[in-house]
Design a protein around this nucleic acid. Structure first.
Lengths: 161, 161
DNA sequence: CGAAAATACTTTGAGAATCAAACTCTTTGA
DNA sequence: TCAAAGAGTTTGATTCTCAAAGTATTTTCG
């Protein structure tokens, strides 16, 4: 792969890791005692609320890619810390719905601002046409990942280490 | 932020998470009993070897952004599993150098192939000029993250939750 | 209707990965 | 030479995670 390929690959293996670390640091300064994973759970809950999405416990767990048990533990902790609240569904009393508290919405706003700045930093360096092809490239990557499962050819047939 | 901004942000919050999950799945099929974090440690060790980089324990820990203690534990486990080996430096006997075994190199090759496919999927969908501006945008993002620490304006001054 | 199956969530027990701090061994510098 | 600094390891605790077992509720169907 050429020079662009090198840059893209380095981005994938290094820079994203750095983004997460920076995000974590800025979070630690803003809301000590809240981990990035907890923040992302709050985000998922806020997103479900704003987007009119499914805010049932199971749906949130699926969105985050964790098991129901993991979600229960995390939600209990965030409830205790005052970022989320549980709400039993009256129509189907098996169901637990998750909602952000005011405090939860506030910390989610902080998080959204972080992402907004990140995106602005990227877009600011590009012409509108470049921005367009950039986002198209990302869509292509997303499609690739979702479609293929991305197992390198020959891996399954040659799986002895 | 406009429509491109939305795409970019969604990529940051969702697609990268999916990449990691896919990577984990394909790894599980190839090398059961090896976690993604372990794989990335092997990768760092191979990179230090190939790139003529610093392969001392501490340097690898810094590269992965973990403490020395964490690295020791992980390295011990990977040594037991046969992916890495330790090598005491003769010149300075405090130093421990980490090297991949043949098995370690093999699994790292598998991992590299995964990334190569990913990058090819992106580049394949772009013209050379688009590829160029894509990689420029990623460079811009990397610069932003490294320079700024990316704390949203006003966050430090207003840190009550 | 009413028992059996399915569903939604919680609890439990166990295993990574992580950190900070205390510790060991080795080198450096006054 | 000997105190201080450096490199790595060990220890004890915490967090995140999962699978599997458990509880409460609803749905299905005989």
């Amino acid at each position: 792969m050429g020079n662009s390929g090198e840059t893209i690959n380095r981005f994938l293996v290094e820079v994203f890791h750095e983004i997460l670390r920076t995000e974590e640091e800025s979070l630690a300064a803003y809301a000590p005692g809240l981990s990035l994973r907890e923040l992302h759970l709050i985000e998922a809950v806020c997103l479900a609320e704003d987007g009119g999405g499914d805010n049932r416990s199971t749906a949130i767990a699926a969105a985050r890619g964790v098991t129901a048990g993991t979600l229960t533990t995390a939600a209990t902790l965030l409830e205790r810390k005052g970022f989320l609240r549980r709400c039993r569904d009256e129509a189907d009393r098996r169901v637990v719905r998750l909602l952000p508290t005011e405090k939860g919405r506030r910390v989610n706003g902080f998080h959204a601002a972080f992402h907004r700045e990140l995106v602005e930093a990227v877009l600011g360096a590009l012409t509108p046409e470049q921005a367009e092809s950039f986002s198209a490239a990302l869509e292509g990557l997303a499609r690739f990942i979702r479609r293929k499962g991305a197992v390198p050819a020959g891996a399954a047939a040659n799986n002895e280490i």
